[in-house]
Design a protein around this nucleic acid. Structure first.
Length: 180
DNA sequence: CAAGAGATCATCT
DNA sequence: GATGATCTCTTGA
């Protein structure tokens, strides 16, 4: 059920689609929070101007250049955290932003999870998890396969959100979500 | 209903 | 010192 490290070796854009319909599981304080992943965005390679990695290796982006299967979490606009899973091999920067999940269990009903900032708040995700593995027994945050299959026809593809400055890359259809 | 502004800070220049 | 892979609230038509 729990996705192992090998799963994350797939090409980023393929993996972005594979993650739809999988389940994000968070263990915290004896509680388990579960949400079905319904929207992702891929950030791929050293030339993708929308990616933090396009400015080269820095202390922050180093994680994106590292091995796949680790969480990359950063603060945006001073307020919100965004959750990403690192993909591709060493020295090739890429990651997938998890933009939205559907609440399954363990969540307060009034907490929305339909945006990257909101889902991190609902799942109590912050920088303490930055750089931690998404695989292995010790992980407190991981992704599971519960046998849900998403038909190719159910997946919508659009340009990514909030990256008007990304020039030639801003119209790349690297955002994926499940219809409805 | 659409559009704009403010919140607020780690990271990079 | 500038800026953003966001969200919410406010404004105005």
């Amino acid at each position: 059920m729990r996705l192992n490290k090998n799963f994350y070796t797939q090409p980023t854009l393929k993996l972005s689609r594979q993650l739809l319909g999988k389940f994000l599981v968070r263990k915290i304080g004896g509680k388990t929070i579960v949400g079905k992943i319904i929207e992702t965005e891929g950030y791929v390679g050293p030339n993708d101007l929308a990616s933090h990695a396009s400015r080269g290796r820095t202390k922050r982006t180093e994680l994106m250049f590292g091995p796949n299967g680790y969480w990359y979490i950063y603060l945006i606009y001073g307020i919100y955290y965004c959750l990403n899973i690192v993909t591709e091999k060493n020295d090739y920067p890429a990651a997938i932003l998890i933009r939205a999940v559907q609440p399954i269990s363990g969540l307060k009903t009034d907490l929305k999870t339909d945006g990257p900032g909101k889902l991190c708040r609902a799942f109590k995700i912050d920088k303490k998890l930055n750089g931690s593995p998404a695989f292995g027994k010790k992980s407190r945050l991981w992704i599971e396969d519960r046998g849900v299959k998403i038909e190719a026809g159910q997946i919508k593809k659009t340009p990514r959100i909030g990256i008007d400055y990304a020039g030639a890359y801003k119209n790349k259809p690297w955002r994926f979500y499940i219809k409805n």
